[in-house]
Design a protein around this nucleic acid. Structure first.
Lengths: 337, 337
DNA sequence: GTGAAAGCGCTAACAT
DNA sequence: ATGTTAGCGCTTTCAC
């Protein structure tokens, strides 16, 4: 193991000089610099990041907390985070929480202890008070995808509006009985998407039929049964608005397996625009979220927060960034007369 | 910031005693232990992992290197790795290399310096000599998905056999003109899949037609054009064997867009069994890789290597584990008469 | 059983 | 322009 000290001895200088050269600091004679660099080369020295981090009090490492990287939204967000982090010299630790608050707490407990500079949290739950506490303790935190209140920086989309516009589109294209495949209402993003759905119906003078609201019971796959039950029931929808693309996929499967055609009998519309949506049969009409940009911006904001903290500045007031969504019209929806 | 020292002072003992209590070591009077624990509680102390790591020479952190987490294989592998790592008290750093050897090198250079205990590499390229060097330097490394030679521990599948069996299935079910959508041959896994394809044809007395071999030019999407060109040409296949599921998805899209039916006109068969395969239209016949298990086993092996190293034992001879694959028959293939 | 002290490898005043 | 030195917070002999 080559250390700074050995390099210093080898080059016949002090450790501080070597440290200066490594850090690219000024005030080193060119000749000395060359001698040190030669020593570094010959001993193939590379600095111990750990020792440095211990000394300077940060690690250039951030943690990304996601419900599960297997949810197809998050690989894209993750790339946004990682690319941005790498560009700024940061490394990313990946944490899957499986929506389990205990796992989340455990990760925070473990990582907070001075070896993570900040957190990007995609897995925020309404009762994630430990995350609020983290922020309150002055630890850099940025939320994305989900958020609750303005006390923490966040990067999100306008879920209400996304749903409102999606459902309005269905109404304008002639649909009268629009069902919704609704995610867990505890998550505010689904609550908001529900409200967008309800208000769109209301504003266009369509009645709200409780029987058309499918509430997630046991994970995304539960919509398979829920959809089939709906189709077996008294009131058959002419469109289903799925509150996420993975849900739409399950809904589509269920509809086909019951022998209905998409979009001729029933239109399906999702939210997310995950890669797969374009390759389904039929390709899915959906509302695209700028997932990569969300990750990238969240990382950028987090790094800014960390920089502030390093300069011992007061953290700026939290900002919630709302990114634009876009309705992507494909073949899973059709005009009704 | 509460440190060990403060806890010691508060409890009126030495730092070594506190350290012993924290580490759960014996030789501490019960009464003292209680006093220390109380101090820990009241000062809400939690140890600085960084300082500990610097001292003991390891971090309980491993790095996972993947081509891209957006390739749908890798989220599953990643979960296998992360779940296993967490169970053993390890944290995972995620590195996307985009098949770029410079990015890979940069990550290794940065992480190797004593703050990563080991690497799991899914992105190995034939000329990734820096990874061989890593291993040769005594650094714990496990490959998965790809490997080159037996000098490094690895967890893989039998790519030759997977392809051989897949193509044999197509032949047995009556297909005569089987095309292949072949990934970059530099990657041995695709070379092996090609050989499995060729040998299956040979062993069943079918001729090899170069025109039926589509070589990846510019990423997975290049198979869209390649497939369409093939379908426009003189020799129309009755089946296409795609050497990965993402390729199969693109191939299916191209076939449909050219107006052929699957499986009536052309059968399609993939390899991977990513989640999406079951939801395509038609659901994809494919060879499943135990992706989660590969990740989990790779992590387990790596942690074993790390444990060995910690005990300053010689590393055991590398073992290449070959996991079982399984042909999953769905609706994208049909019997020909 | 418990404490004193050395030191992991590095950085950053402070001196010179 | 360069060197000296005091730690960062922890573990771990070695003494007592």
């Amino acid at each position: 193991m080559t250390t700074l000290k050995k390099v210093a001895e080898y080059a016949g200088v002090s450790t501080s000089t070597v440290s200066r050269v490594i850090a690219g600091k000024p005030y080193v004679k060119e000749e000395t610099r060359q001698r040190v660099l030669k020593a570094v080369q010959e001993l193939s020295y590379s600095p111990n990041i750990l020792a440095k981090s211990l000394k300077v009090g940060r690690t250039n490492t951030i943690a990304l907390m996601v419900p599960s990287i297997q949810n197809q939204m998050f690989p894209i967000v993750t790339r946004g985070v990682e690319d941005t982090a790498r560009k700024h010299g940061y490394t990313v630790i990946l944490c899957n929480t499986d929506e389990n608050i205990e796992v989340e707490k455990e990760y925070i407990r473990k990582l907070q202890n001075r070896w993570i500079d900040g957190f990007i949290v995609c897995s925020m739950l309404p009762d994630s008070d430990h995350i609020r506490k983290l922020k309150a303790d002055g630890f850099p935190v940025v939320l994305t995808s989900r958020y609750y209140g303005d006390s923490i920086d966040a990067v999100i989309i306008d879920n209400y509006r996304a749903a409102y516009e999606a459902v309005s589109y269905l109404i304008i294209t002639g649909h009268k009985k629009i069902a919704i495949a609704l995610g867990r209402r505890q998550l505010s993003l689904y609550q908001q998407r529900l409200e967008g759905y309800l208000d769109a119906l209301k504003d266009h003078g369509l009645p709200i039929d409780e029987r058309l609201i499918m509430n997630e019971t046991n994970g995304t796959n539960s919509f398979y049964e829920l959809t089939q039950k709906l189709l077996d029931g008294p009131v058959i929808p002419d469109a289903i608005f799925a509150t996420s693309d993975p849900k739409a996929i399950v809904v589509v499967r269920a509809i086909k397996d019951r022998g209905f055609r998409i979009p001729e009998d029933i239109s399906v519309l999702g939210i997310d625009n995950i890669e797969m949506s374009a390759f389904m049969e039929p390709p899915l009409t959906t509302v695209s979220q700028p997932l990569y940009e969300m990750g990238a911006l969240a990382a950028k904001k987090l790094i800014d927060l960390i920089d502030h903290k390093n300069k011992s500045e007061e953290p700026p007031a939290p900002v919630v960034d709302v990114l634009e969504t876009e309705l992507i019209i494909r073949k899973s929806t059709a005009r009704r007369k």
